[in-house]
Amino acid sequence: MRPVWLIAKSVLIEAVRRREVYVIILLSLIVIGGVMSVNFFGMEGLTKFYRDVALEVMSIATALMVVVLSCRQLPREFENRTIYPLLAKPVGRVSFLLGKLLGVLFAAGFCFFLFMLIFLIGTWYLGGKIPWIHLAEYVYLQMLAMTIITTLGFLLSLIMNLDAAITIGIIFYLTANILTTGISYIYDFAGSVGKVILIIMNYGIPQLTLFDFSEKTVHAVIWRPLGIVTLCYLTLYAMVYIGVYFSLSMLLFRRREL
């Protein structure tokens, strides 16, 4: 387990020291700050609007960072040859990839942590009540979504070049968020071939909207937190995609010549 942790640590150090994370957060902060200055909803409306925008920005910004970070991990190692001294140590390629996965998740966690600070300070400033359980569930579900995106990022970066991997990763994220919601609307209107395609898309693309608990966190007064069973199902659902993407990545990486 120590090699996994050490490799994760190297990813985290890089993510924390690179400026781009802070640039993303700063830009997000500008958007969130802008929202706070709009006061035509009344104080209660503003608090909800603020939460809504802040959580949405948080999800999108973290997902974009995760797409870039995960797609970049392996190609950068190959390109800069930093992988040689690492894999010359008694570290298996599975541990290496697991370490990279954990590292990207730590970085996503770090991003969430910074966003959460902003979110909590903003909510406190607006005098709103903080729905702690909803918030914890929101972060947990988002981390599951980030794990799916990370493993997909690894897979993409092993089958195409870095730029293509990032582009496809972003398209995938948007598709998984938007298209999968749309599938249920257009399914009834599709022909038989179209229905088959939609079914394949429905199962082939993970429905990341399932992991978006932001709406319920915003309207925490109306919605109760998710039950443990639902959380377990969602975890299982995520694990299937994580398992498939990670296994495929591992298959490609194991026999990859360096």
């Binding site: 150090i13 690492l86 008694p90």
Partner: peptide, 26 residues
């Protein structure tokens, strides 16, 4: 112990941190 022909090391890391990682992996 292996030294590659050409290798760059993580630019955002310090020598001590890098050696802690490599030593830990060993």
């Amino acid at each position: 112990g292996y030294l590659p022909e050409v290798a760059l090391y993580y630019p955002f890391m310090k020598a001590r941190e890098l050696l802690e990682i490599y030593g830990g992996l060993s």
